[in-house]
Design a binder for these strands. Structure first.
Length: 299
DNA sequence: CTAGGGGTAAAT
DNA sequence: ATTTACCCCTAG
């Protein structure tokens, strides 16, 4: 009658994820009753939460419980092409926990998949949303939040800084003093383009007259560095290598997300994204090749 | 109440 | 035509 379909807002998704982090997946009723989340999820039922979680997990994880059924259904209607399993489709399966984390899945298709990788952005939003600090949250707080709830790569901070800056540039976040807060409720979708100065600073390639080279602007390794990193990975423990690979994937995602929106005129963005992609790809390959072990992390 | 199979229909 | 929110049912 009134609302045939209410799309889940990112606030609701964030609340749901935060709720799962706090109470565990499956405790829908508990999450719903938690005053921390009920303010956002009061429209949803426990079943809604479950279904939504199912959808989210399914999308983030690749193929879960429900896809098979759907795929089986689709093959009937859409095409008469019954193909077996694609060669090389060795997607690893999760052991027990199927949370849609930004880095978890070991999709071997880094190079071919294009879109749908703006999760880190959402993670930042989630952090700010959940923290609910008046006036916004600063970088450290946001970083800590994310590190606590999710994986924590060594130089994740650089990534975060980059992301924060980027999100501020495109108007998704508003920086005041040293704190970030989310730009007006849902006016986020309106930001189409970054008009004027996007990169008036830094990014001068061939400038040999630059007196000081100051800090390393770039997070993404160059091609020569890729080999170095890969060599390092070979001597790592499986856990370390997995973390490194996960980080590489995350960085590639971030770089590509930026490239998608900002690379219109920024020459360097594409190259960065490509390098990151190459590294991530190689990292995953190396990781899979050298070890059969995976880290079984159960909470 | 939850997990999960199976489905419908609204949005895209 | 696919995605997505929501529904219904059944076994634990």
């Amino acid at each position: 009658m009134g609302a045939p379909k209410q799309k889940w807002t990112s606030e609701e998704e964030s609340a749901l994820k935060a709720g799962v982090v706090k109470h565990g997946a499956g405790k829908w009723r508990t999450i719903l009753k938690d005053p921390e989340f009920s303010s956002v999820l009061y429209l949803r039922s426990n079943v809604d939460l479950k279904d939504k979680w199912r959808n989210m997990s399914v999308m983030a994880n690749g193929w879960g419980s429900r896809e098979k059924a759907r795929l089986a259904l689709k093959r009937q209607h859409a095409s008469r092409d019954d193909n077996g399993l694609t060669a090389g489709d060795q997607s690893d399966e999760d052991s027990g926990d199927a949370r849609p984390l930004p880095s978890s899945s070991g999709s071997p298709q880094i190079g071919s998949s294009k879109r749908s990788m703006i999760r880190l952005d959402n993670l930042i939003m989630e952090a700010i949303n959940t923290l609910k600090e008046p006036g916004g949250s600063n970088k450290t707080t946001i970083g800590n939040f994310i590190e606590e709830q999710y994986w924590a790569p060594p130089n994740f901070k650089r990534l975060l800084s980059m992301k924060l800056k980027f999100l501020t540039q495109i108007g998704k976040l508003v920086k005041t003093k040293r704190k970030y807060r989310i730009a007006s409720a849902n006016a986020v979708a309106d930001n189409k383009k970054v008009p004027t100065m996007l990169r008036l600073e830094g990014k001068q390639k061939g400038s040999s007259s630059t007196p000081r080279v100051d800090k390393e602007e770039i997070i993404v390794p160059t091609k020569s560095q890729i080999d170095l990193e890969l060599q390092k990975m070979r001597s790592m423990t499986p856990q370390e290598a997995a973390a490194a690979a996960a980080q590489a994937v995350a960085e590639a995602e971030a770089a590509m997300a930026e490239a998608e929106e900002a690379a219109r005129e920024a020459e360097a963005a594409e190259a960065d994204a490509e390098a990151a992609q190459a590294f991530a790809e190689a990292a995953m390959k190396t990781l899979k090749g050298r070890t059969t072990q995976r880290l079984v992390k159960q909470h």
